[in-house]
Structure formats: structure tokens, C-alpha cells
Design a protein around this nucleic acid. Structure first.
Lengths: 201, 201
DNA sequence: ATCTGCCATTAACCCAAATCAAGAATACAG
DNA sequence: CTGTATTCTTGATTTGGGTTAATGGCAGAT
């Protein structure tokens, strides 16, 4: 695959949130991007280190998590076509509390912090882009937040089946359980309960 | 109090996140602001309606909440010197899932959606401001998120006593309980437990 | 093919918080 | 000041998920 094609997905993404992006603007933006290949199990962000990049997933699957008392809690999964980053650490330049790790061999398109600051300086419309990205990330975060709050465990599981069925294929169940905020045992019970309900109906 | 003094607090706030804001820029920004008085118990945002404004609290106290199965769950309180808005609804122009309601007679400085779009068009540096506000809100949201996740109930209560002691004076305890994510009964017991511990120590 | 280690399920028991149910304390209107 | 309503506390009971432990399935390594 030629290098320039590696930015195709990201370009489509940008075009969606900023249709007025000029060819020159995009050309300069593209010059600041870099492609990175990470192997399964490799870390993209580690707890304790400042997150220096926003990463767009071209191909593959990653998880975002944190540790409490030696237990891993998964915050989210991120597959092709989405941004993943500890944006908090990225913005504040403070050490990350999180881990981001590849669950499959993954291809990322990365925007480095310093390059983005350069972009803001050089290309005036970049602040507009920066605003839109920040707003976009805010929207995504508050949406996942609301689903987490609104629904019961069972509803959230059913939602997951409906909205992200690929997760069930690509991710072991103990990770789904952690993502839902319960133990694998409890997750197993819920599934058994749902099967019994379906049989009864 | 003269009208222009009503923007003093907000101006201080803006100067902090954007020290380079020019006098003209501020003058134009100010021309797009409006002051609004709301009575205790009055709603600032209602579930089902699009949130058309970002509100800066000049004086008073408001709460942000949502309903699940006829139970109210409080997300946050907001007092003098802070912004309150359903920023998600504001950005996406979709109906809000939330309620924002005054707990005391409150004075707000409001930025209307249409005015803000006008500002972005007329004042180039406003996109920078918009980016910084979005980033700021993202940072605040993810920080409250992390504390909520990391800490135990008791720790969160002790944190609240330390960081927002005024809440305990101004807000009934069943609201604090809802904010902490437990029933008033459980909250009462936690307090009793802490008192007993303190006596024992 | 067998061994090994990881993952999923199931059961028994435990515990923190929810729920249900009275009271006690406080605030508030007339 | 009195009566009413709201808020807070305390107790009894229930419940959902955690913990521990045993079992079975399956995949990859040798």
C-alpha cells in the first residue's frame, strides 16, 4: 500500500468534521503525520509517561484501561476509523494514569504534540480544526459516559451486542466483563440469565 | 450593580485561559453576552430541549442531573465562578438528556449558541478560545471521571469535605448522597461510621 | 497426541448497599 | 406557637455482585 493511502481514512474523518479544509491545509497537516505499526500486546501509552500523540487507528484494535489495586479496569476499546489517546495527559502534559495497548497487530496514524502546536502556529484554520477535534472528543466521551450511567448492566450488554458485535468476536469475555465493570463470573451469570429468559419467552 | 460589572468574574476567567485576548476581542465578546436571573427551583436546562447556551454562574448554585426510572441522579453541582451547560447538547444540537436546576436564586451570564457561532466568524482568535474552552471542559470532565473511578465512597466523601465544604452547608444531604451515587440511608450510615472511627481514634 | 496454561462456567458463601419500614429531628407556614 | 411536611437516622430484610474454588473446554507448544 503506497504511503499516501495510509492517510485516506483519516482524511475522510477530517473532511467530515471540517468540510472547508483546503487542499493546502490538508497537505500541510499530512506532512506532520506519521504511520506507526504496533504488535499485539504492545503498549501505545503507559501509565506514568506523558502521552505525546493522538493516534488514529487505521487497522487493528486497541484497549484503554487503568489499574486499581493490581486489577485492570477497561475504559474502552477502539477499532478502525477512530482516534485513541490519553487526551487528558496530551493536553495537560502530565503523566498518564492510563494504559493503551494493542489487542491485535495495529496500524496507527499519529499526530505528535509538538507537530500539532506547530500546526496551530502555521495554519490559522488549524485552531478551528483543533476546536472541532476537542469538541468531537468531548462529545464521544460524554456519550459513552451517559450510556454507562443510564443503563442497567443487562441493557448495556444488549446494547453492546447491537452496536459493537465485532467486540464479542475479537475480544475475550473477561475483557468485556471488565469493560462492563463486573467480574467474569458475574458476566457469565448475566448471560445465563438472558438465555433462560429467552427460552422462557 | 452596574451592568458591566456583571461580566467582571467572567472576564477574569477568560483572561486566565487566554492571556492574549485583546481589548477589542473582549469588547466584542462582551457584546454577545447576556445576564439572566433564575429563581430557586427554576430550570436552566430541561431534558428533551436543546441546550442553547453556555452559562457562567455569577452568583448562586445549580445542580446538574438526569432521571433513571423516576429516580434523580445528580452529576454535579456548580457554584459561583464556573461554567454550567449541557455542552453535549449545545454542540450536537440534539435534545438534552439532562436537567440543570437552580438550588438558590442564581445570576447567570449566558452565551447563546448563535452568538458564539457569530463570534467564531467575526473574531479569528475566537476559535482559539473555543478550542481552549473545549479542551478545558474535556480536562475537567475526565478528571472528575477518574476521581469517581479511582476512589472508594468514603474517600470521595472525605475529598468532598475537603474540596467543597460549602456544599454541605448549601445542599440537603440526600442530594449529596445522590451525587456520591448512593441512597440517603447509606450516606447516613457512612457518616455514622466515620464519627465512630474518629471517636475511637 | 498429549501436556500445559488460559479461559469460561457453575456453585457456595459473603458482604455492602438497596429496599422497606418506622421514628426522630428540623424547617416552615399559618 | 402549633401543626405539617420534609429531611435525617436507625433497624430489619433482601439482593446483586464479589470472592473462592472446582470443573471443563480449548488452543498452542513440544
Amino acid at each position: 500500500m503506497p504511503v499516501e493511502e495510509k492517510f485516506e481514512q483519516l482524511r475522510t474523518f477530517y473532511k467530515q468534521i471540517l468540510p472547508t479544509l483546503t487542499t493546502e491545509g490538508w497537505a500541510f497537516t499530512e506532512s506532520l503525520l506519521s504511520v506507526r505499526q504496533v504488535k499485539k500486546r504492545e503498549f501505545i501509552v503507559r501509565q506514568g509517561a506523558v502521552c505525546n500523540h493522538i493516534s488514529f487507528v487505521n487497522k487493528g484494535l486497541v484497549k484503554m484501561s487503568y489499574m486499581t489495586e493490581d486489577k485492570e479496569k477497561i475504559i474502552s476499546f477502539c477499532n478502525e476509523g477512530n482516534y485513541i489517546s490519553d487526551y487528558h495527559s496530551f493536553l495537560t502534559r502530565k503523566p498518564s494514569m492510563l494504559y493503551i495497548q494493542a489487542l491485535e497487530d495495529t496500524e496507527l496514524v499519529e499526530t505528535q504534540y509538538d507537530n500539532l502546536q506547530l500546526l496551530y502556529k502555521k495554519v490559522p484554520e488549524a485552531n478551528l480544526l483543533g476546536r472541532l477535534i476537542a469538541e468531537q472528543l468531548f462529545i464521544m466521551m460524554s456519550e459513552s459516559d451517559m450510556t454507562a450511567k443510564q443503563e442497567t448492566l443487562e441493557t448495556r450488554y444488549l446494547l453492546l451486542i447491537k452496536d459493537q458485535p465485532w467486540l464479542l468476536q475479537r475480544v475475550p469475555q473477561y475483557m468485556i466483563a471488565s469493560y462492563l465493570g463486573i467480574t467474569p463470573e458475574a458476566f457469565s451469570r448475566i448471560k445465563a440469565r438472558l438465555v433462560k429468559q429467552k427460552v422462557a419467552a
